[in-house]
Design a protein around this nucleic acid. Structure first.
Length: 560
RNA sequence: GGCUCUGUGGUCAAGCGGUCAAGACUCCGCCCUCUCACGGCGGCUACCCGAGUUCGAAUCUCGGCAGAGUCACCA
């Protein structure tokens, strides 16, 4: 067979030579050890936690080593394009401080290794496919869908591996004349890799490939024997071919991708071999899992788990720093240790390593995220939290009157946010995510203040609610310091026959109507509408004297 | 079904032939305390199973089992 001739028949258009592309995309001039990584999302615009997890690995690898992190849009599947998706991807990741150095972008591409959108790289793929055909390493296949289905049925009957390979690859047998004729008649075809693999041999004679994965170590699996499609009948490459061509030409050093790609690794290895290139270092990450209804672990799925989309966390109002730190705790097992030793260090100072990555899929743990978030937010100044809440509210709650009024007075809100946080020891860790914070803090604002909790039973039974509030109001002096203020409560407590020390009450409940905690709770409920809150004195200082008196009076009126 | 990956408490995980098998989160109890939170102390709960190698196995080998992934002109 004259393969050169075949290549001309199949690719009659003018194409640059492979050597041309090698020249215009030279090796990158980067310092020793610098890593080049890439994110290759399909442009559906949908990003979930798993994508973020992977993107984070790419980003750290590149930026920790002084390398390059670029965005390549993998839109070779023409069926699922979504308008504005690229922009969404970039913005979503930027929100979490994951920024690209080059690649497809909003204002066109930046970087010298473009085009960064696969659908625009047609001639490049075709040039290399043509070369493969000319060397007898790839061939046109005219099998129709129906014929392939028949082959599969037959294979099932015979209980052999399905697919187009070896003797099943009928188009391999076609002569140049037959092909030429079919092409002239306008028959459609795909280009398939002509695999050298043979898995029908006795097991001990099957060649195994061995790949060193940066996360998983030595990987060993049977070689590829499938004549996979590299160019679809539309002339567009499949993922396998695009990956090999692009990552070679874009000089990617580390390919970070999910473990679901592991089974197709032999295909990629053979492709690199046939093209005569050195493959990049593969880093197959474990997949984030989720517990399904039956209690089984399962991969995160974009179709089944919309609540795990990045948008969910943005809507709830998780701070990006919190999500970032949480991800790091499941990404690198030694991160938590490091964080305890370096409580105030910037996350980026942590040396992320592939070796410390887990091979098994982690279950997403909301409890842990919340805990991490509390710690993270404690370190974020109130003014910054305010900015964050403001942005969150404007994006997700623009018409929510309650939320908007709570944020109207910046200085006031900042004081509210800081309550109990500046204690020299054991500061409060109340803040987790925006929605939770806003719901938590409603009692600071007259517009959203509501009495939701009942008065304590002990006091109600004794009929002392009114007298406690009246005495409290009578002795209230807004300028009292915390200690003076509480001593007054102790006096009222004692006068009315309640225990000043809760312990006394617990020891001899028959001697008292209740204890100082119950008395304070009456004030809490009247003032905050809740039985639980941070320090009352501190809250009062923020509310201001007028508001405090007004709320107490209003409560007395309602029970009059 | 073939191939591949994974298997330590409820969750995430240290561990690399000798440990009373770390730690974090959750849960429970106690302490601190005017409530809640914070903090402190303590507790429950784990090496998938079975052989083998070895003086000794969570760690090495083999065989099961379980979960996950993948077998497209999708990525």
């Amino acid at each position: 067979m004259d393969y050169e001739r075949l290549a001309e028949i199949l690719f009659p258009e003018h194409l640059e030579s492979p050597e041309y592309y090698e020249t215009i995309y030279p090796l990158r001039d980067l310092p020793e050890g610098a890593k080049v990584t890439r994110l290759g999302p399909s442009p559906t615009g949908f990003i979930h936690l798993g994508n973020l997890y992977g993107a984070f690995v790419d980003e750290r690898l590149a930026h920790q080593s002084g390398g390059v992190f670029f965005l390549r849009i993998e839109d070779t599947d023409d069926k699922r394009q979504v308008e504005g998706a690229v922009e969404t991807i970039i913005n979503s990741l930027r929100f979490f401080s994951i920024n690209f150095d080059e690649g497809a972008g909003i204002d066109g591409d930046t970087g010298d290794y473009g085009d960064y959108t696969q659908s625009k790289r047609g001639p490049i793929y075709r040039a290399f496919a043509k070369r493969l055909v000319a060397e007898g390493k790839a061939y046109p296949c005219f099998l129709t869908e129906e014929e392939i289905a028949e082959i599969r049925e037959k294979q099932q009957e015979l209980k052999v591996n399905p697919g187009i390979y070896g003797k099943w690859a009928r188009s391999r047998e076609l002569t140049l004349e037959e092909i030429h004729k079919k092409v002239n008649m306008g028959e459609e075809f795909v280009i398939r890799l002509k695999s050298d693999g043979d898995l029908s041999k006795p097991e001990d004679q099957i060649r195994r490939i061995s790949v060193k994965d940066a996360i998983r170590g030595e990987l060993s699996m049977p070689e590829n024997d499938q004549d996979v499609v590299i160019l679809k009948k539309t002339g567009i490459p499949t993922y396998h071919f695009a990956h090999v061509i692009d990552d070679h030409l874009m000089r990617t050093t580390h390919v970070v991708r999910g473990a679901e790609w592991l089974p197709s690794l032999p295909i990629h290895v053979e492709l690199f071999e046939k093209l005569g290139w050195e493959p990049p270092i593969y880093c197959h990450t474990a997949q984030l899992m989720k517990l399904d209804e039956e209690g089984n672990k399962r991969n995160l799925s974009k179709r089944l788990d919309p609540e795990l989309s990045l948008d969910y966390y943005r809507r709830e109002g998780y701070h990006p720093k919190a999500v970032r730190e949480y991800l790091l705790t499941i990404l690198n097992s030694n991160f938590e240790e490091w964080r305890i030793a370096n409580p105030d260090a910037d996350v980026d100072e942590f040396q992320f390593t592939l070796e410390k990555m887990s091979n098994s899929g982690a279950l997403f743990d909301l409890n842990k995220l919340n805990d991490v978030s509390k710690e993270v937010l404690l370190k974020v100044p109130a003014s910054e939290i305010y900015d964050f809440l403001r942005a969150w509210a404007d994006e997700f709650r623009p018409d929510d009157q309650a939320v908007q009024t709570m944020l109207a007075d910046r200085a006031y809100m900042e004081r509210v946010l800081d309550i109990g946080r500046n204690a020299e020891r054991n500061p409060r860790k109340d803040h987790i995510f925006a929605r939770q914070m806003m719901e938590n803090l409603t009692y600071f604002f007259d517009e959203t203040f509501q009495i939701t909790d009942p008065m304590p039973e002990e006091v109600v039974n004794a009929g002392d609610v009114r007298v406690i509030l009246e005495k409290y109001l009578a002795t209230y002096d807004h300028s009292d310091d915390n200690e003076t203020w509480f001593n007054k409560i102790r006096e009222i407590t004692d006068e009315l026959g309640y225990a000043v020390k809760p312990k006394d009450y617990k020891k001899h409940p028959e001697d008292y109507k209740g204890h100082v905690g119950h008395v304070s709770t009456v004030i809490r409920v009247a003032l905050m509408g809740r039985q639980q809150s941070p320090d009352v004195w501190e809250i009062q200082q923020i509310l201001g004297e007028d508001r405090v008196r007004a709320r107490l009076n209003r409560y007395l009126e309602t029970i009059a």
